[in-house]
């Protein structure tokens, strides 16, 4: 019995080894075949841009079948960190690179090159049954920094306010902090209130707001669905209240809008250059508009 037992084991090992090596050879062959006539560009970063980047990647691959662009999200900080560490070809960001990040990249031998690839309005959203229709920037700042904690202070129902924000690695978070919570004042040290919920995705924010009448949050214009209500925002106390639309973002009347960026770890060359050039084509910029973002010239 023992002898047959070991023999079985040996046979299994031998078969296993043969199968594995065969697989390995097969995979190698496939990879080699792929290497000859196709290229994969890696593209990572902002979750705001990820749907747009995916749509671009698909359209580009349809036109140029030998180039595929692999797109992943994770947040602007994630994409920029990957570029600094040299693991992606193109980083997506919904904020500009910080000086510190540029320095880090230079230390690693990369000189980042910036492209503004689209514009985005950030919509402030509440539950559909919330009677509040409009807010000023100052009120938004007070809400998210925790100075106003009940809807009744804004003329709404007697309900506690629950603030929702994206995680700190999101460019939208940083942008909202700088231009809404701190109202563009660089020396302002106001923070999001510690009770602000930090949700890992745009979808998380939309789904919580659609079911919680206490909640208020923000999301890129492209992510707003019918399940939530968008609030009109006024830049000053006596000004007009403006709804975020493609038109108001282009003519810059809506106060919470920003540029979306792509960063390359050096001057664009070869396939990367072709891709970036294509992004500024009419075809690519019409995809921008389809997804609820705002095209650039």
């Amino acid at each position: 019995m023992r002898v047959t037992g070991s023999r079985y084991i040996i046979i299994i090992f031998v078969i296993g080894a043969l199968v594995l090596s065969a697989c390995g050879a097969e995979i190698n062959r496939l990879q080699n075949a792929d290497m000859v006539d196709s290229v994969t560009l890696t593209n990572k970063g902002s979750d705001t841009i990820v749907n747009l980047a995916l749509a671009w990647a698909e359209a580009y691959h349809a036109t140029y079948p030998n180039v595929s662009v692999s797109v992943t999200g994770g947040g602007s900080g994630t994409g920029i960190a990957a570029m600094i560490n040299g693991t992606v070809d193109i980083a997506n960001a919904s904020r500009r690179m910080k000086e510190k990040e540029v320095d880090n990249a230079k230390e690693n031998g990369y000189v980042p090159v910036e492209y503004v690839i689209a514009r985005d309005g950030i919509a402030v959203i509440v539950h559909p049954q919330n009677p509040i229709n409009r807010l000023t920037l100052q009120q938004l700042s007070d809400i998210f920094s925790g100075k106003i904690t009940n809807w009744v202070d804004l003329g709404g129902e007697n309900r506690p306010i629950v603030c929702l924000s994206r995680e700190v690695n999101s460019g939208t978070h940083v942008y909202f902090l700088e231009s809404v919570v701190r109202m563009g004042n660089k020396n302002d040290e106001t923070f999001f209130s510690p009770g602000t919920l930090l949700l890992p995705s745009s979808e998380g924010i939309t789904s919580e707001i659609s079911q919680n009448p206490n909640a208020i949050g923000y999301d890129g214009l492209g992510y707003v669905t019918d399940a939530v209500k968008t609030v009109a925002v006024s830049p000053s106390d006596d000004g007009l209240y403006i709804m975020p639309t493609i038109k108001t973002v282009i003519d810059d009347t809506y106060p919470i809008s920003r540029a979306l960026y792509m960063y390359l770890p050096g001057e664009a060359t070869g396939y990367t250059k072709d891709y970036i050039d294509w992004i500024y084509s009419e075809q690519a910029q019409s995809i921008v508009e389809e997804l609820g973002f705002v095209p650039v010239d």
């Binding site: 947040g75 900080g77 880090n104 690695n169 890992p200």
Partner: peptide, 19 residues
Amino acid sequence: ISLRTMTATIAAEMGEVAN
């Protein structure tokens, strides 16, 4: 109330940081 755990912090932020 809402709280943040150590594990969630590592998971949410590790992807963002520069080595």
